[in-house]
Write a protein that binds this DNA or RNA. Sequence first.
DNA 1: CTGTTAGCGCATTCAA
DNA 2: TTGAATGCGCTAACAG
Lengths: 336, 336
Amino acid sequence: MQNRPGRSPRITISDVSTAAKVSAATVSRVLNGTAKVDPQLVERVHDAVRELGYRPNAAAQGLARGEWGTIGVLVPDLANPYFPEVLKAVSAVARAHGRRMMVMESDEDPALEYELVEDLMRCCDGVLLCSPRMPRAELVELVERKHPMVLFNRVVPGLTAPSISVDFVGGMTQVCGHLAQLGHRRAAYLSGPSASWANGERIRAFEAARAFGLEVTVIECGATSQAGYDAVAAALESSVTAVLTYNDLVALGALSRLRELGVGVPEQLSVIGFDDISLDRVAHSNLTTVSVPRDELGRRAGEILERLLVNEYDAEPLYLAMTLQVRDTSGPPAVR
Amino acid sequence: MQNRPGRSPRITISDVSTAAKVSAATVSRVLNGTAKVDPQLVERVHDAVRELGYRPNAAAQGLARGEWGTIGVLVPDLANPYFPEVLKAVSAVARAHGRRMMVMESDEDPALEYELVEDLMRCCDGVLLCSPRMPRAELVELVERKHPMVLFNRVVPGLTAPSISVDFVGGMTQVCGHLAQLGHRRAAYLSGPSASWANGERIRAFEAARAFGLEVTVIECGATSQAGYDAVAAALESSVTAVLTYNDLVALGALSRLRELGVGVPEQLSVIGFDDISLDRVAHSNLTTVSVPRDELGRRAGEILERLLVNEYDAEPLYLAMTLQVRDTSGPPAVR
DNA sequence: CTGTTAGCGCATTCAA
DNA sequence: TTGAATGCGCTAACAG
């Protein structure tokens, strides 16, 4: 940014203005289209800009305009195949509004998460926060900073920040309904991180399921395919005819283990995923699962944030519906 | 950033200085540890900061210091499982140097890529560029901006920017050696995008392989598992005993197809991946492959960039070695 | 050790 | 329409 040995000197707006023989104000006006400028001057400015290779300094612009031209997104884990598609959509919305998207990753670390959000608030017009585990109190603190922020993939009641999420309860309810209709009576759920809001939502669906005659036992597991692989043993012990999972990764892990054990899917055991990540295509597992409209999620989240940035507040939490994808890993229960 | 209806007024350093009854300079010194300050004042400042909830404005800091405190990373596709691990490492290095990492994605679009790099240069101290396809000429243009930048995952001879990459030639050579030692004579290579530098590097290894008695036929394929799935047919036609791939994704796709076709791996056909992405663990395929030291790649890349930022220029391109991972999908050729 | 002063580069008043 | 002046919030150089 400043001159340093070995680096070309910073060209500023005043370099351009001298070269074009106009005032800096005019250069600014030409570049931003803020006001009408004599075509002749416009051309002179453009020429100068091109020849000097001038690029406006974003910090100076930000300071002067009081806007960054940037939105920030914080996700817990970039390696989670759930996010890229969402991020792509957010980015597209941001670009459409002349903003760039900056993404940071908290590495599933709540402390770091807090710090990074603060950081993002210092250098973005608004932030999109995906924070499954941050304690409510901290979330409240953050929201009270009154910095434009939207919560994403989590709904915290009573928070004065818009939120958009997925109807996980509905999704899992569909899964249960599917199984019940196939005739299943007992299933096991390979649970995700217990502190995770999203996991709690999934579990909430099991109450209703009971009313329809499906009993679901919760088994501690985790969020990775390895966890799913390992949890198969416990699931088999419980004499169930179907296994529900926290996400597709877990399901894929379980599937691998079942294949090794020679347990037929879905003849002997139905396995159902959650999220419908495209990894599934890689593994060619044809997993029955429920899908999240990730693209829409990102798009809507971006739009809510943009609206917030022009002071239109979406008070109502938005829940997107999931869609059941019946494929090859679910079927009628084994006859015993 | 500026006052807007519904948002709390921006608290500035001067708010703090009045509250603490010191000068703004002192506040700055306390916050940045730039100079010794009377402990009493230090405390007053800290109190004021806490009570007001003051956060320094990053744009103003950037402008005043001539530094952003941010490094930018551009990757072609966040959905590529290759990157997250690299990004994590880069981020860690950046944090260790008091900088935050900002990542952008070009969506494999060369035009967008160029634009985004320019964007990053406007708001980052330095940029890490992973750009497999950008034409050399544009790369040169970008580099000539004299903005600190390091090329990553690609080496362009004669470019005055440091670069770090992986010894793809060496990696593929190891693969070929492994096969040759097993007794293979003819193999097929499922090629990645032909414009990709990394793909060219892999192919370069086949010349040496010929000297060792292994003939490799290149088959157009792509970079996705679907491409691998589809390319199996062509590979089988060519009467080879082994299939090499552009990356693990392709190999996983091929594996799925081979399983469907009932072709025994490795009894009838050996399949070897490239990159050793962890997805492989998800699919539990136990793929023989060569691994990229992704963590080291990110770390070294970050360090080179940091060094560049303090004007230490690494002229020599750095190549990291790959490691052969012999697992279950490679074996002696089928006896015919 | 501390306060005062002067920019950083730009957008935006206000006059002309 | 255009230019000159002002300020965004902060750090750094300079005095004291």
